[in-house]
């Protein structure tokens, strides 16, 4: 057993070292996804922009929000939300989509997780341009504090990698997981302060604050969004929560790797 575990750990290390393979595969994913479209990766960008304009217009009025604050809030939230949910939904197919490779090529399977990490990350990266445009348009304050978004980004990227790891394994074994996650995430979306500012809910119904404080997605988004918008560090609770989330995800990821090990090939 311990020998198996040692091999698995070796596989993980070996996978990381094969970066020249998984970065290329991830890039290829992006190119292929938009091969036959005229606008190409621009669609990711357009998709987000249209949503932001539509939701932004309606909700800013509905909730009586100032567009100068709300539109950048919405844009940053949407980008981070899609990044995390794509990690779950697309990450769930990381192994399934690579069945042809896994069954005939003797490379450690974790390169396919890293491939998915790259392609999901690049897709999210495209949408960052939307935020830059929004930020310039509304003249978002830029200061040294804005840089505090970087450690937050590191947290979110780590969460993405761990989520992909967890869901790639689970969804290979139980193919309903990705579908189930899609449904649950849809519900969670409306409970997460993305299309409404957290303060809007807290001001009206302070008793419902648990909806926000217990929502892991909120904290993961907040550690990036808050410094981006305000140039100030996010509340310490969000850092603590984000740390706890990473810890839990890390344990789960290590858990699924240890449980499935190299046997994932039998589930394909």
């Amino acid at each position: 057993m311990s020998e198996q575990l040692r091999r698995t750990a070796g596989d993980v290390v070996h996978s990381v070292r094969l970066w020249h393979i998984w970065t290329r595969l991830g890039l290829l994913d992006l190119r292929m996804r938009f091969r036959r479209s005229a606008v190409g990766p621009g669609w990711v960008f357009l998709n987000l922009s249209v949503l932001v304009v539509a939701i932004g217009f309606i909700y800013a009025n509905l909730l009586g929000q100032d567009a100068h604050y709300f539109i950048p809030y919405l844009t940053a939230g949407m980008i981070l939300w899609s990044y995390l949910t794509n990690s779950i939904v697309e990450g769930g197919n990381a192994f399934v989509n690579c069945e042809g490779y896994i069954k005939q090529i003797s490379l450690p399977i974790y390169i396919y997780i890293l491939r998915s990490f790259v392609s999901v990350g690049l897709t999210a990266g495209i949408t960052v341009f939307a935020f830059v445009i929004v930020g310039l348009f509304y003249r978002l304050p830029v200061s040294g504090g804005t840089l505090l978004a970087l450690p937050g980004l590191l947290v979110v990227m780590t969460a993405s990698l761990l989520l992909i790891t967890i869901f790639a394994h689970l969804n290979t074994r139980f193919r309903d997981i990705a579908h189930m996650a899609t449904v649950l995430l849809q519900v969670l979306f409306y409970a997460t302060p993305v299309i409404f500012p957290a303060e809007a809910l807290l001001r009206r119904r302070p008793d419902l604050s648990f909806v926000i404080t217990l929502n892991p997605m909120f904290h993961l988004i907040e550690v990036v969004r808050h410094p981006l918008l305000t140039g100030a560090p996010p509340p310490i609770q969000s850092y603590i929560a984000a740390g706890l989330i990473l810890l839990v995800l890390g344990v789960c990821a290590a858990g699924v790797i240890a449980v499935f090990q190299r046997r994932i090939v039998f589930a394909l």
Binding site: L28, R31, M32, R33, R35, R36, E99, G100, Y101, K103, Q104, I105
Partner: peptide, 11 residues
Amino acid sequence: FEFVTGFEMEA
């Protein structure tokens, strides 16, 4: 092993 799987169809 086999030459009919393991392609990126859109590539």
